[in-house]
Design a protein around this nucleic acid. Structure first.
Length: 449
RNA sequence: GUGGAUGUAGCUCAGUUGGUUAGAGCACCAGAUUGUGAUUCUGGGGGUCGCGGGUUCAAGUCCCGUUAUCCACCCCA
């Protein structure tokens, strides 16, 4: 087999300097929006024990069943052979989402017992072994927040408000729409599950009209019958019992109060019974944020309440609520909306742009030019000098192309007098300066940098 | 995991019914009265035609496999 060219792994992408301008903007807005509401950043490992995700997301979730990036742990040479199940339980998996790790860290740090009220956010790469397509990658970035320790519907409203704020800050318009639903409490779901089982049972007797996936779901995770997209299955779902019909008073009131709190938002809030997040840990509130002008691809954010997860992780019962936002769909949406506008990125652009370019006219000037550049960097300026040993003309050309405002020209004439020629690229004016006056002049130009 | 489309220079693409040394624009590099940014002009570097195999006197062009990308499904951020 001859050499195939090297390529980035499927579903990943390189983020080159040009791409990072936008990414940095998204990251900045995420940091700002989260800390403005009192959330503090946490960073957990990129991989965890596989069983963490199996436990938190649920064995029957698609993520666990077919989308995990799992690597075996090393075994001692003389260790006994492991069964497939043991090997899996003993493996590591690259995190497919952020909530499980946060809950694990929360318990491990002792928060559940000692400091239950925590407001955290995270921002970083997640991994899912999926077939890539538009808006979906195997390595992608998620921004999420998690509010631990309060049962109050006020938390639900705040978390949703933070997510909204993120999109508003990025320039999304007032068409932003929050779609909410409730999954109820465990007891509600048990009651609902029985009701659904009773309702659907006849459909699975004998030769079923249901799709193959649904046949499996009926046994494994009956709720997921409800979000099947096969047309015949959708028809057969008509008239299925509604969770709200069996939901207890507390859950109902929680939902009611949250919706009232959401009235304060600068966005439309609608009830959407079809939102049934695919992960097991959700309870009560689940929500999505959509931007309808984007059409089919309008979902930007998903989240909800997970009151049982901390306990599941071995901590004391702690209610919690969070969201996650994928940068990939957000980037696509922004591109479609022709956002962000240039001004939003201007400061980032400026911050990475060189301020000074030191031009060396002859070979003898190169070392002095380098050391002048080094001195100026020590003063805090962003300074370039030519590393390709090109002509003075080519250096000026490059400085102009990079839009560097000041060039310092160093040649035999200047060196002889211990001078340097300062050229204002915008005004196209230059002046001879004694080197000891240089910093002063530059300070004046850049406004006391 | 299933189905469909695509893959020629860093980028956007040409490339006739298979026929000699595979092209253009942009980008990059150098030069145009001996130390200076635009435009223009001249010249230059850069391609195992995704990879592997097959058919043929001859393959970028036809066939098979493979890989990657894009699109749809599943699901999701």
């Amino acid at each position: 087999m001859a050499s195939a060219p090297f390529q980035n792994p499927r579903g990943t992408r390189d983020q080159l300097p040009e791409d990072l301008l936008l990414i940095h903007h998204l990251e900045r807005v995420a940091h700002e929006v989260a800390s403005a509401a009192g959330y503090e950043e946490v960073r957990t490992p990129f991989f965890e024990e596989t069983r963490l995700f199996m436990r938190s997301l649920g064995d029957t979730s698609d993520v666990v069943e077919k989308e995990m990036f799992t690597v075996p742990r090393r075994q001692a040479d003389d260790a006994p052979e492991l069964s497939a199940a043991e090997a899996l339980a003993n493996s590591y998996t690259f995190r497919p989402e952020g909530t499980a790790s946060c809950a694990r860290a929360y318990v491990q740090a002792g928060c559940a017992a000692n400091a239950p009220a925590q407001k955290w956010y995270y921002l970083g790469p997640m991994f899912r072994y999926e077939r890539p397509q538009k808006g979906r990658e195997r390595q992608f970035t998620q921004f999420g927040i998690e509010a631990f320790g309060s049962q109050s519907p006020l938390v639900d409203a705040e978390v949703i408000a933070v997510a909204l704020r993120f999109f508003q800050r990025l320039g999304f318009g007032p068409e932003l729409e929050v779609r909410v639903n409730s999954m109820g409490d465990p007891a509600d779901r048990a009651a609902w599950s029985s009701a659904l089982r009773e309702f659907f049972a006849p459909q699975f007797e004998g030769v079923s009209e249901r799709c193959a996936d649904c046949q499996a779901r009926f046994e494994r995770n009956i709720f997921r019958l409800l979000d099947c997209k096969v047309p015949r299955c959708v028809e057969l779902n008509q008239g299925a019992p509604d969770l709200f019909a069996v939901m207890g008073e507390e859950g109902r009131e929680h939902h009611q109060r949250m919706c009232e709190a959401l009235q304060q938002l600068q966005a439309t809030v609608t009830e959407d019974r079809s939102i049934v997040r695919g992960l097991d840990y959700y309870s009560r509130t689940v929500f999505e944020i959509h931007y309808p002008p984007l059409g089919a691809r309008s979902a930007l954010c998903g989240g909800g309440r997970y009151d049982g997860l901390v306990e599941e992780m071995g901590g004391r019962h702690t209610p919690a609520m969070g969201f996650s936002i994928g940068f990939t769909p957000t980037e696509l949406a922004l591109a479609e909306l022709q956002l962000p506008v240039a001004e939003d990125l201007e400061d980032l652009r400026q911050a990475r742009k060189a301020q000074i370019y030191v031009v060396a006219m002859t070979a003898e000037d190169r070392l002095p030019a380098m050391s002048l550049a080094a001195q100026l960097r020590e003063q805090g300026w962003r300074v370039l000098s030519d590393l390709r040993e090109r002509s003075g003309k080519a250096q000026l050309k490059e400085a102009a192309k990079l839009d560097v405002p000041i060039t310092l020209i160093l040649g035999p004439d200047e060196r002889e007098k211990d001078h340097v020629k300062l050229r204002d690229m915008g005004a196209k004016e230059e002046q001879d300066l004694a080197q000891e006056k240089l910093v002063e002049h530059l300070r004046a130009f850049f406004g006391g940098a």
